[in-house]
Design a protein around this nucleic acid. Structure first.
Lengths: 214, 214
DNA sequence: GGGTAATCTGACCAAATGTTCAGATTTTTA
DNA sequence: TAAAAATCTGAACATTTGGTCAGATTACCC
């Protein structure tokens, strides 16, 4: 069966499973990002992973299952690597760190970013459900913190929703639409320096909007 | 043949052709935006247009041809409706107008915006070629104008590339990732008022970055 | 109204693709 | 080491899909 019962409680013994699943997930993410979600075939993923197609289907029953597993790993990665706001450090440090972490993510793992964007623009129910479950509550927390900062005179009042929409748009555009960015910047590949410039530009923009001195 | 010789010089007489092509293009754009480029089948487009599939293929030899025709019409629309910078009016009026026009476009024709974004994220050669041919030169013109404004002390010096990347990201996110925006704003549909708010927010942000008083 | 060009369309086809499955092979357990 | 569980895989299948085509129908011109 595709979901075999563990022989005993120590499921770590099944390292073959973990290893192959990781290989398939990483490969699938890359192929999805390069080819687009619908254009990608299980055959492509299998070939690139060096496995027969039937073996891929042994671990992931359907293409949809595989895509959702990829999306889940992407979302998990993000939850792990973007830290939340903490009131004490104030708006400047928090916003700067948030933007820096988001852009680092886009640079270090552009495939993740692109697959997520593709799923979002294609309105995949899986990611919409995640956003509904996670982001709405998250935004509420952030709103409270920002309100507090505003009350303390640490920043100007701004629309929290539009602020986050803007930060997402600005930080992800460099990964998601890298083809466009590369053409505008007239570069074959984006260097770390380009991302650092982007980081500075976006940070200055956001801090300025919040009335925070740079 | 698919490319029939016009019977006489007055090709306007062939209104059937023009009419059906327009119907197919408009329908295709809608379906592409809703389903994604690869998931869309010529059958879907035909059904939604109320035509047999073979009739669609009579006007557009292949799916790729049809997609490119759609993209071309989208790009043409944009060239027509976003006016260029003119030095005399100064940075504030120009930037404000540019942002306003871009967001209006996203609101009035969300399908166009989304199809373009899908093609861009999928790195369709057709749009990349357009960007190379058109945008690079366009950016050069805009850079000269902005340099002039900076020299006249009308605005702070900024990276023109990042400025335009930012304006594109900010103005299009409301159409391209409307699903995400709707969830964050907790609305079923975005109203004109939402877009106006976005317009103000983005404008304030960009003007601030350029050191222009609001 | 007759002839020609243009348009339309049902039927068909070849290729691609997601998925299944039976049996071979390997790994783990007892 | 033998049984059992897990993993692997070539081959096959059903469906979908882009695209074709011959013949019917309609529009247009003289």
């Amino acid at each position: 069966m595709t979901e075999p019962k563990k022989r005993n409680k120590d499921q770590l013994k099944s390292h073959i499973r973990a290893q192959n699943q990781a290989l398939i997930l990483a490969t699938a993410e890359r192929v999805f990002a390069r080819q687009g979600l619908a254009k990608t075939t299980t055959q492509m993923i299998a070939d690139e992973a060096g496995l027969p197609k039937a073996n891929v289907h042994y671990y992931y029953r359907s293409k949809k299952d595989l895509l959702e597993a990829v999306l889940e790993s992407i979302l998990q990665l993000w939850l792990d690597s973007v830290s939340q706001f903490n009131v004490e450090d104030g708006p400047k440090a928090n916003l700067t760190r948030y933007i820096s972490q988001k852009i680092d993510q886009s640079r270090i793992n552009p495939c993740s970013s692109k697959v997520f964007a593709m799923a979002l623009i294609g309105e995949e129910e899986f990611v919409l459900e995640f956003l509904r479950r996670y982001f709405v509550g998250q935004l509420q927390k952030e709103r409270e913190i920002i309100d507090q900062w505003v009350a303390e005179g640490l920043m100007k009042p701004v629309s929290v929703e539009h602020l986050f929409i803007s930060m997402w748009a600005l930080t992800q555009t460099y990964a998601d639409f890298d083809a466009q960015v590369k053409i505008l910047l007239q570069k074959d590949e984006l260097s770390e320096a380009d991302f650092d410039e982007a980081k500075q530009f976006v940070t200055r923009m956001i801090l300025g909007t919040c009335g925070i001195e740079a």
